[in-house]
Design a protein around this nucleic acid. Structure first.
Length: 928
RNA sequence: GGGAGGAUAGGAAAGCUGGCCAACUCCGCCGGACUUAAGAUCCGGUCCUUAGUGGUUCUUGGGUUCGAAUCCCAAUCCUCCCA
């Protein structure tokens, strides 16, 4: 008998699988599923494993259900990250090199070539394919592509033409990080410092100083009425400028920044901070306020001038208090204008005093500012005299008003500093005007998507709410970039299509990916794709024969049936692709996606997997160490796909033992040749149920549930079966059929072991294509199962009693309930009104004669019926079993189990008080 | 801060259209059988208690109900997305 040797099985299977999963249109019904393709910038870890193994299990399942299954894979290489990686490697960045050399184990000679970004993604794309294959993924690799293939770019151009024609692509202005030395926008990877910094939008409130404006930057324009003064840094020399022709006073840094943000700036002079201090400016809405000195004012923050709202800003409150404690400006009082529960009259004062903050240098100031900011934003309301609106509403409205009527302008600034370019220069915010957007904000477009989502199958159902929300929350999306790999933007070839935007309809491209390569890219005009995907005829189409073949593929496969992805992509990619499908296939509802399955995230030993933190376990290592089947079965069995899952090496080991146990069991019993016994009928009946349950679980993507049934369910039954076999009897020859079913049910999960066992069982062809087991109704026998359940429950009861009394039993008597108790049981179980059922029973003379005995039994039966599962009670009512026959038949078994004589008697004949407690389905047990 | 989803015994995880629930299943651990032994396998146990029973449980605190892990409210914590 051949030994369990997973790696040998894997080798065997791989040989037979080469090209086996290449899938072409056929007479069979199709099933097309796909996964969000990977960005191959590093090695695969076990978290990736599950993302691709789940769809593979589903693919294998439907393939065995005799569908024509398409499971393709490609690689997403568009975007900037690898460009950054290659630069860092070129710059000999230690951290990056360590990651690639030590964690991902890239050989030095290849690492040396990683200064070219394409080399990185090509290397890891190959590695992905190798590891995916090692995991047994049944992918049609002919269709593999990467997103910078020239043919793919042509496809993207076609797709974008449709978006553009539909009016969904538009040009606009957009603030970006910008390096004034490189004269280029700056991506994450180009930053030396400040990669977390975000661009935020300030409103500049204009105070009038003589004929000039002094702009103060604020995130809280709604507090304008609470301004008591301005702050200027007395140690700073400010610039007098003409901004768009108007005189302004700002910091020198601000002058430089504003010039990048759509303003013409001309420096006309200087004025020191100390010259400003003590002067007054006129408030845009009301009266005059003074300029006070404040060393904390940073000239490099926004305009370099700050408006002070001491009632609501802790910094302003403290700065003012400090001055007043020196006896200065004592006439200034904070002006509260926002009411917020739990913060007293003057929130900033309340919070500062409650925290016991002494001065501006206190380290808690930032947190306190954030706290007030949040509290007021979420719960605050303006005083009635200022409109009485909630802060979150008023903020927008006031900002709008200030811009419309009071000369306010918007200024963009980073939320943290410094932000420094790799070249060493400071990065600024610049407004670019040739930025292109996808108008996801378009209400009509949203509605189209919503209408379609309503018809889609979403798994698990809970994610529907998140899709719905995302559709309506999406705003216009900046869809072009200047740096990275990708397809050139057709309407501005200096720019590239942004990575999330170029991978939205590629599921359609898969259908033709292997054939479109045969055509020269330059021939792939939009008309060509219009023909392939939309059936639009036009003159002079090249290579018509090939196009027809592709058209045929597309029509056969599309739309896809299910797309699989982790849940983090719901709010971008998964929703984007629906927007794009709705436009590209406008008017062809039958080409829109049918369903999606959304996964949970992966953990490693309870912590988040993260390559940068080194908390990863490479999938390849896992496969080598434990075997492909083991990795698959562990990942599928520990949680359902949509749950987060945790990988723990010590748990995986026991999964391997389980596979081995399965293998050994099958090898042991497959050639059994005994005559069938009664218990074989039970086993066959149970098997039908497991087939049905496994099937329905897989139809619903419940991999764990399916394994539960297919593996443990059958294993448990087999144990009982073998226990129940008469002494010295081997299993019957019917076990061969059970093995055949069992191996097929598990084949989607453990295909390597599956293929090997299939051969051992003399199965035809590859198990990967063998027909999925179907239930045979003829073999289903609820009655046999029920009888067996009665026996098993009784055995359990006997065991628990034997254990409790701690005596060595000499004999066991099983006393069965008399027929009249069965009658009561049935009447109660059937009765709709439990209150009158006793009366009903008492109508019977023979029952009445028994008196209290009857009522007691009725009570006990009521309790018992409650305790028994419906699947037991129901058949007992419909078609009672003959308990005597069951136990008589099992007498030998029971004696063998307990090693003492077993007597089966009717309760009346037992002559023992305990016997009187016998109930239907619950015989009395007397142990001597 | 906004949104979506979670929290179940040592670990993972089912149940969650209210009564089949002391709560499926797997792992771990403990005991027994087999074995020279280990491993594997099989049997049993694994909240407390007990002739097959009863008690206290499903993050915490309230509520609805004859009855709640399951429904409602609040709090705490976790995950993902956006800000």
């Amino acid at each position: 008998m051949s030994q369990f040797n997973l790696s040998a099985f894997e080798e065997e299977a791989h040989e037979q699988w080469t090209h086996a999963f290449e899938s072409n249109p056929s007479a069979l019904e199709k099933y097309y599923l796909n996964v969000a393709f990977p960005y191959p910038s590093g090695a695969m870890h076990v978290g990736h494993g599950r993302t691709y193994i789940v769809p593979d299990v589903i693919a294998r399942f439907w393939r065995m259900r005799q569908k024509q299954v398409l499971f393709p894979m490609a690689f997403h290489v568009t975007g900037a990250p690898v460009v950054g990686i290659s630069k860092r490697i070129a710059n000999k960045d230690e951290k990056t090199i360590r990651l690639y050399r030590d964690l991902y184990r890239v050989p030095q000679n290849i690492l040396d070539q990683f200064t070219d970004p394409l080399t990185i993604v090509r290397h890891f794309a190959d590695e992905y394919q190798r590891v995916m294959t090692a995991c047994g993924l049944s992918i049609d690799w002919r269709r593999r592509f990467i997103t910078v293939d020239p043919t793919y770019s042509k496809f993207i151009e076609w797709q974008w033409k449709h978006l553009y024609d539909a009016g969904h692509v538009m040009k606009g202005a957009h603030p970006v990080r910008y390096c004034t030395v490189d004269e280029n926008p700056v991506g994450d990877h180009d930053l030396m410092e400040g990669d977390k910094a975000e661009v935020i939008k300030f409103t500049l409130v204009m105070f009038r100083f003589g004929d000039a404006f002094i702009p103060c930057a604020t995130l809280r324009p709604e507090t304008i009425h609470g301004v008591t003064n301005l702050w200027a840094n007395p140690d700073v020399t400010y610039a007098k400028i003409r901004l768009d022709g108007k005189p302004w006073i700002v910091s020198k840094e601000a002058a430089e920044k504003l010039a990048l943000q759509d303003h013409t700036v001309e420096i006309t002079g200087e004025i020191t901070g100390s010259d400003l201090v003590g002067k007054t400016v006129s408030h845009p809405l009301c009266g005059e306020v003074p300029i006070l000195p404040a060393p904390f004012v940073d000239p490099d923050m926004a305009s370099g001038m700050v408006m002070s709202v001491p009632a609501h800003a802790p910094f302003d409150y403290i700065a003012l208090r400090d001055l007043q404690q020196k006896g200065q400006y004592t006439e200034i009082k904070p002006i509260p204008l926002i009411k917020v529960e739990g913060y007293g009259e003057i929130p900033a004062q309340y919070a500062v005093e409650k925290a016991g903050i002494q001065n501006q240098m206190d380290s808690r100031m930032d947190a306190l500012t954030q706290e007030i900011y949040s509290a007021e934003f979420s719960k605050g309301k303006l005083f009635d005299k200022y409109g009485g609106k909630p802060v979150r509403v008023a903020r927008e409205e006031v900002a709008e008003l200030m811009q419309q009527k009071y000369d306010s302008v918007v200024m963009y600034e980073f939320d943290q500093r410094p932000v420094v370019c790799r070249c060493g220069n400071r990065v600024r915010v610049k407004i670019l005007h040739d930025q292109w957007f996808l108008k996801y904000g378009d209400q009509v477009w949203k509605q189209e998507v919503q209408d379609h989502v309503d018809t889609m199958a979403l798994v698990p159902p809970e994610v529907r709410a998140e899709f719905d929300r995302t559709i309506w929350w999406l705003k216009d999306w900046a869809c072009t970039r200047r740096v990275g790999l990708g397809t050139r933007f057709p309407w501005d070839t200096n720019q590239l299509i942004e990575p999330l935007s170029d991978s939205t309809v590629y599921m359609a491209y898969y259908t033709i990916a292997h054939k479109v390569r045969e055509i020269e890219p330059k021939l792939l005009t939009p008309e060509v794709f219009d023909y392939i995907f939309l059936g639009k005829e036009s003159e002079d189409l090249p290579e018509k024969k090939k196009l027809d073949a592709m058209r045929k593929e597309f029509l056969y496969w599309y739309p896809y049936d299910f797309r699989f992805s982790a849940k983090d992509l719901i709010s971008n990619h998964l929703t984007f692709q629906l927007f794009h499908h709705c436009t590209v296939f406008a008017g062809q509802k039958d080409k829109l996606p049918r369903g999606m399955v959304v996964f949970g995230m992966g953990l490693l030993n309870g912590a988040k997997m993260s390559s940068s933190k080194g908390n990863v376990f490479l999938l390849e290592d896992a496969v080598k160490e434990f075997g492909g089947d083991t990795v698959r079965m562990f990942l599928m069995g520990s949680a359902e796909p949509w749950q987060d899952f945790d990988w723990r090496n010590e748990l995986v080991l026991s999964t391997k033992k389980q596979i081995e146990r399965f293998y050994n069991t099958v090898m042991e019993i497959k050639d059994a040749s005994g005559e069938p016994h009664d218990i074989d009928r039970w086993l066959a009946s149970r098997l039908q149920m497991h087939i049905a349950k496994t099937t329905s679980a897989l139809e619903n993507f419940q991999t764990r549930q399916a394994l539960q049934e297919a593996y443990f369910g059958i294993e448990t039954d087999l144990k009982w079966y073998r226990r129940r076999l008469p002494k010295d009897c081997d299993g019957s020859r019917e076990l061969h059929e059970l093995c055949s079913v069992w191996v097929r049910l598990l084949a989607p999960f453990i295909p390597f072991t599956g293929e090997h066992l299939w051969k051992e069982l003399a199965g035809e062809g590859l198990i990967s294509f063998a027909p999925w087991p179907v239930t045979d109704e003829k073999l289903v026998s609820p009655k046999i199962e029920l009888a067996e359940e009665l026996l098993a429950r009784t055995v359990e009861d006997i065991e628990s009693i034997v254990k409790l009394i701690q005596l060595q039993p000499k004999a066991i008597t099983i006393a069965l309930a008399p027929e009249w108790k069965h009658q009561i049981f049935r009447m109660i179980a059937k009765a709709e009104d439990k209150n009158t059922v006793i009366k009903e029973i008492m109508k019977d003379e023979s029952m009445r004669k028994r008196g209290k005995e009857t009522t007691d039994t009725a009570k006990q039966c009521t309790t018992l019926i409650h305790r028994l599962p419906p699947y037991v009670v129901e058949p007992l009512v419909q078609d009672p079993i003959n308990e005597k026959a069951v136990f008589d038949a099992a007498k030998a078994f029971l004696e063998q189990e307990f090693g003492v004589p077993v007597h089966v008697v009717m309760a009346e004949e037992a002559g023992h008080v305990k016997a009187l407690t016998a109930l239907p389905f619950k015989p009395a047990i007397i142990i001597e």
